[in-house]
């Protein structure tokens, strides 16, 4: 009986040693394996475009978009802390937007981060154009496009219509109402600026804006008369 008990204890001890060794082997091999691991986002390169991914999602497209969104946040965070280069950010954001066009945060994120951090203003605008398609009543998206065109791409002429579009949407701040006119003026399109200011003057109840716009109209009319007299 005593020998049997001793044998049993020995077997148990032996089993535990084996279990411990195997567990140690697992941890060690996993540790070594990490060196060979590809960058975590690289798998996204092999994903098809969002439009092709949508049928494969079998109705779970929102869930898939959420998971990709979490991946995007981690991708952005890891590159922000290291090389500050985001070559695949546009691709991932496009996937998310195509899978779940109503998910509005990626539009803001793409529209701002791609241009400010990633120096990809054109790609940022592509994302924002999709945002306008999904949410035509949000003033932020045309405003950001206008901002990217003017500030990052230095094109006030292309920026002005977007700012004008934003200024006409509900909830747009008052400054957008004069900003579009300023951009038209900067790009030398005084007639367009005058037309825009007149439109704002007739459709805005805000007295401060009306006063500012009236002054701009006065200046532009005076300038035009001066030009006409010179010619």
């Amino acid at each position: 009986m005593g020998v049997q008990l001793k044998n049993l204890r020995f077997t148990t001890l032996y089993t535990w040693i084996v279990v411990f060794s195997l567990a140690l082997g697992t941890v060690l091999s996993l540790n070594i394996l990490q060196k060979y691991q590809t960058k975590s986002t690289e798998f996204l390169l092999y994903l098809p475009s969002g439009k092709n991914l949508k049928p494969i999602a079998l109705g779970y497209n929102q869930m898939l978009a959420d998971l990709l969104w979490i991946k995007t946040v981690s991708y952005f965070g890891s590159h922000f802390m290291t090389d500050k280069e985001y070559p695949w950010l546009f691709h991932i954001l496009t996937l998310i937007i195509d899978l779940d066009p109503r998910f509005d945060f990626p539009y803001y994120f793409g529209g701002i981060v791609l241009s400010l951090e990633g120096s990809q203003a054109e790609n940022a605008n592509k994302i924002l154009e999709k945002g306008i398609e999904a949410y035509p009543n949000k003033w932020e998206y045309p405003f950001y496009i206008g901002f990217n065109l003017y500030y990052h791409l230095g094109d006030p002429l292309k920026a002005a219509p977007y700012i004008e579009q934003a200024s006409l949407l509900p909830g747009a701040p008052q400054f957008t109402k004069t900003l579009a006119g300023t951009l038209y003026e900067k790009s030398g399109k005084n007639n367009a600026a005058l037309e825009f200011y007149r439109g704002v003057y007739n459709n805005t109840a805000n007295e401060i804006v009306r006063e500012k716009v009236a002054n701009r109209i006065k200046d532009l009319v005076a300038k035009r008369e001066k030009d006409d007299a010179r010619n």
């Binding site: 779970y60 929102q62 869930m63 959420d66 998971l67 979490i70 946040v73 981690s74 998910f103 803001y108």
Partner: peptide, 24 residues
């Protein structure tokens, strides 16, 4: 947990995952 690892529209993730899990 996933909700903590993200930014923006956090409630959406809980609802998406919940409905997705019930469906799946």
């Amino acid at each position: 947990v996933l909700d903590q690892a993200t930014v923006g529209q956090r409630n959406k993730i809980i609802k998406d995952m919940g409905l997705g899990s019930i469906n799946l």
